[in-house]
């Protein structure tokens, strides 16, 4: 993609730090909710062809639970909180004082609880970034779906679709205990948002 041609290593590092701060705060929020320590993997910042993006969550046909937010404000973008259906059930079992249905299906109440957990985490992800960059970023109300990863993630790529055939995403995984609950945050800033992030953080935009 033209936009990221000659993208310096340094810029990628800045974006990693963005992911680190956002997901770090979200992990802290989750840790408080669960009253358990949460580990976080080093964020990955990748410029990937559309076809490969779903591979980072187990392939285009892998079934995932996703809470989706459109990010509004100075730095528009798309934010996904992604869990496997099993992890979502475990998370519910830990957190919500509701009866958890057996099997693969989720009740209205369970959907609502997952959306709310996603909402809390996305809120802390974005508010820490907003503090860090002094830019406004706020999530829309959460939308939730359980479906094929490819079908879900393609929704976050539409803004990139107009620009080329790759998208840049900031991917952070966090893990509770012995990999019992593992979740992923995908932040996909709109193509025009990168310059604003860099300017706000004092990275010269002509730095290549």
């Amino acid at each position: 993609m033209e936009l990221f041609r000659g993208f310096a290593e340094f810029k990628m590092d800045v974006l990693k730090e963005v992911g680190n701060i956002g997901a770090g705060n979200a992990a802290t929020a989750l840790s408080r909710l669960l009253d358990k320590p949460i580990d976080m993997a080093v964020p990955k910042v990748q410029l990937l062809p559309f076809g490969e993006i779903a591979d980072s969550v187990g392939g285009a046909e892998n079934i995932v639970v996703a809470v989706f937010f459109r990010v509004e404000g100075d730095v528009p973008g798309n934010l996904f909180f992604i869990l496997s259906p099993e992890a979502a059930k475990k998370l519910l079992g830990r957190l919500a004082a509701i009866e958890i249905a057996e099997g693969d299906s989720f009740s209205e109440m369970e959907w609502s609880a997952i959306s709310e957990i996603g909402n809390i985490l996305a809120g802390s992800y974005l508010s820490s970034l907003a503090d860090f960059t002094q830019l406004s970023m706020s999530p829309t109300v959460p939308a939730i779906a359980m479906d094929m990863a490819g079908a879900i993630l393609s929704y976050g790529l539409l803004q990139f679709g107009q620009m080329g055939n790759d998208a840049l995403l900031i991917d952070t995984t966090f893990i509770e205990g012995k990999h019992e609950v593992e979740g992923q945050f995908f932040l996909i800033p709109d193509p025009d948002s990168f310059e604003k992030i860099f300017t706000a953080l004092g990275v010269p935009t002509d730095y290549d």
Binding site: A54, A60, M148, A151
Partner: peptide, 12 residues
């Protein structure tokens, strides 16, 4: 002969 396939269509 054979199949032609595409996976994970959402809004596409």
């Amino acid at each position: 002969q054979g199949l032609i396939r595409t996976t994970g269509l959402g809004s596409c």
